[in-house]
């Protein structure tokens, strides 16, 4: 669907190194309920360092909920999540430790509207990493340059376009130097002409070897960047495979239905 957007950006897969031994995230037997509703059913997922995983599925299938469990924005009730060797329990210290290492971008950006772009980026390094302000600003400017909006540093989020805001949100996460990045439908709230600028930044990140979990419907992005595509439906992982076989030869009936619906319109 967005192949046109990505036509001129070919991700260089040879640069992307995936570790064979280094596990970034390991989820075993995770279950979650909202009241009586069983929203995540026996999720098992192992993510190696450097992997780029795209998660897709119909709305309400639990894909956002799953990645939000990884940094404890949602609490799982059964099973085990280990992030970077730390097991996620209700221990606040462990939660904070994991959140320091896991960056997240949201569908609606969630920039802090009362702070400038630069302050948005330096806030967490200064208060969480206890970094001197000057150093935090240097790092922030470095990442703002990487997402190509250093000139907006002193503006407020409300003065930026959606695509620019999402790029700031990515830069804000990167300032914490995370080991894993979670993306929760980062382009769903954007106008078509802004999707590309955000995807470009994400492709750049992937090329640098960032471990990424990305909930998205950008199948072009999945095809070019992901090394694994996961299809979820009704709270379960129904199918996972490398992008080429996933798109050309889906095994499961529901995957076929889903793909036919999103690709042929």
């Amino acid at each position: 669907m967005s192949d046109a957007n990505l036509a001129d950006v070919q991700a260089d897969r040879s640069k992307m190194q995936i570790s064979d031994t280094d596990v970034a995230i390991e989820i075993t037997g995770m279950n979650k309920w909202y009241g009586d509703f069983h929203v995540l059913r026996d999720i098992n997922l192992k993510v190696m360092r450097g992997e780029r995983i795209v998660i897709c599925g119909p709305s309400g299938s639990g894909k956002s909920t799953m990645i939000r469990c990884i940094n404890r924005l949602e609490e799982h009730q059964k099973g085990q999540i280990v992030v970077d060797g730390i097991e996620l329990t209700s221990d606040l210290k462990k939660i904070d430790e994991i959140r320091r290492e896991v960056g997240m971008c949201f569908q609606h950006f969630n920039l802090f509207p009362h702070l400038t772009i630069l302050e948005n980026c330096t806030l967490a390094p200064i208060w969480v990493r206890k970094m001197p302000k000057k150093q935090a600003e240097e790092i922030a400017m470095h990442y703002l340059e990487r997402v190509k909006i250093p000139e907006q540093a002193n503006k407020y989020p409300g003065q930026l376009s959606g695509g620019q805001q999402q790029r700031v949100a990515i830069a804000r996460s990167l300032c914490m130097n995370p080991k894993v990045m979670l993306f929760d439908e980062p382009t769903s709230a954007l106008d078509p002409e802004m999707i590309k600028e955000v995807l470009d930044v994400m492709i750049g990140l992937a090329e640098e070897g960032m471990t990424m979990l990305c909930v998205t419907h950008e199948m072009g992005f999945a095809r070019k960047v992901a090394n694994r595509v996961i299809f979820m439906d009704q709270g379960q992982i129904v199918e996972q495979n490398e992008p080429e076989p996933f798109f050309t030869n889906p095994q499961h009936e529901r995957t076929q239905l889903f793909l036919s619906q999103i690709l042929n319109h």
Partner: peptide, 12 residues
Amino acid sequence: GQYEAADALGLS
């Protein structure tokens, strides 16, 4: 989202 973004960044 404001609460979530603050949480996700690791702020106490």
